[in-house]
Simulated assay, not measured.
Amino acid sequence: MSTSIAQKMSRQGQWFQPAEADPDASIRLLLFPHAGSGAIIYRDWPELLPRDIGAQALTLPGRQERRGEQAFTEWEPLVEGLYEAVLATNDNRPFAFYGHCLGAQLAYELAVRMERDGVQGPLMVGMSGWAPKGFFCPTEEHIEMPTDELISWIKRLGSFPADIYDNPEMLAMVIPALRSDLSVAAQRKDHGALVPCPLVSYGGKNDGLQEEDDAFQSWVPRSPQYLGHREYPGGHFFIDSHAEAITQDFCSHLYRLAAAAKKLT
Rank of each mutant, 00 (worst) to 15 (best):
I151D: 07
I151C: 03
S152E: 15
S152T: 15
I154K: 06
K155G: 01
K155E: 11
R156N: 04
G158Q: 06
G158M: 06
S159F: 05
S159C: 14
P161R: 08
D163C: 06
D163A: 12
D166G: 12
D166S: 13
N167A: 13
N167Q: 08
E169N: 07
E169F: 03
E169C: 03
E169W: 05
M170K: 15
M170V: 14
M170F: 13
M173R: 15
M173P: 09
M173T: 13
V174K: 05
V174L: 11
I175S: 04
P176E: 01
L178K: 01
L178H: 00
R179M: 01
S180F: 00
V184S: 09
A185T: 02
A186W: 02
A186G: 07
Q187P: 03
R188M: 09
R188G: 00
K189P: 01
K189I: 11
D190W: 08
H191Q: 15
L194H: 12
L194I: 13
C197D: 03
Y202K: 03
Y202M: 02
G204I: 00
G204S: 00
G204E: 00
G204L: 00
N206S: 09
L209W: 05
L209D: 03
L209C: 04
Q210C: 05
E211T: 12
E211P: 07
E212T: 07
E212W: 06
D213H: 10
D213K: 12
A215L: 02
F216N: 14
Q217Y: 11
S218P: 03
S218F: 04
V220M: 11
V220Q: 15
V220E: 06
R222E: 03
R222W: 02
R222T: 00
S223V: 09
